[in-house]
Computed example of a mutant assay.
Amino acid sequence: MFRQQRIEKIDFKTFMAGNHRKPSKHLTNTTLYSFLPSVSVSSFFSPDIAGVYAVLLGVFAFGMLSHFLETYAASTGREALAEAIETITRLAYSIGGFSFIGWFLVSL
């Protein structure tokens, strides 16, 4: 039922040299699955992920532009224009976010 361990005899010189250990036969091969490429220095600048960078840059630019326009309009006394810019930005981000979630779930 239980395997008995055998005592192995090695000579002292082999023991001191460290050659008595057997290399492991099993190599660890773990497969990781991901939706995006792995994050490393070489993959960070790869053209495979350039579309993601373009989308993030576009969303960032749209948000910053709408913020600056809204604050400028509010500081110059055009509250109606500032409110319209805020409403359009809020709707665009909501529609874009839910559209992205829907696309992601459909593409799985």
Rank of each mutant, 00 (worst) to 15 (best):
M1G: 14
F2E: 15
R3M: 07
R6K: 11
R6N: 09
I7Q: 12
I7A: 11
E8W: 07
E8D: 10
E8M: 08
K9P: 00
K9F: 13
K9S: 07
I10N: 07
I10S: 06
D11K: 13
F12A: 12
F12K: 14
T14S: 15
T14I: 07
T14D: 15
F15R: 12
M16Y: 06
M16D: 06
M16E: 13
A17K: 15
G18Y: 06
G18Q: 06
G18S: 06
N19P: 00
N19C: 00
H20P: 05
R21F: 13
K22E: 08
K22D: 05
P23G: 02
P23T: 09
P23I: 08
P23R: 08
S24Q: 12
S24T: 13
H26P: 00
H26F: 11
L27N: 09
T28W: 02
T28P: 02
T28S: 11
N29Q: 11
T30G: 01
T30M: 10
L32N: 10
L32C: 03
L32K: 08
L32H: 15
Y33T: 14
F35H: 05
L36C: 02
L36T: 12
L36S: 10
P37G: 10
S38H: 09
S40V: 04
S40A: 13
V41Q: 07
V41E: 10
V41M: 12
S42P: 02
S42F: 05
F44Q: 04
F44H: 03
F44K: 01
F45R: 07
F45E: 04
S46P: 02
S46Y: 00
S46A: 15
S46K: 04
P47R: 08
P47D: 13
A50I: 15
V52I: 12
V52W: 06
Y53M: 08
V55E: 03
L57E: 03
L57K: 04
G58D: 05
G58R: 00
G58Q: 03
A61S: 13
F62M: 15
F62D: 00
F62Q: 03
M64R: 10
L65A: 14
L65K: 04
S66N: 12
S66V: 07
F68K: 09
F68Y: 13
T71S: 12
T71F: 14
A73M: 08
A73H: 03
A73V: 00
A73C: 07
T76L: 04
G77S: 08
G77A: 09
G77L: 08
E79C: 00
E79W: 01
A80N: 14
A80D: 15
L81V: 14
L81S: 10
L81W: 07
A84Q: 11
I85H: 04
I85S: 03
I88V: 15
I88A: 14
T89S: 15
T89N: 11
A92E: 06
A92N: 06
Y93H: 08
S94P: 00
I95K: 03
G96T: 10
G97F: 13
F98L: 15
F98Y: 11
S99C: 09
I101Q: 05
I101N: 02
G102M: 07
G102K: 01
G102H: 01
G102V: 07
G102I: 10
W103H: 05
L105Y: 06
L105C: 05
L105Q: 03
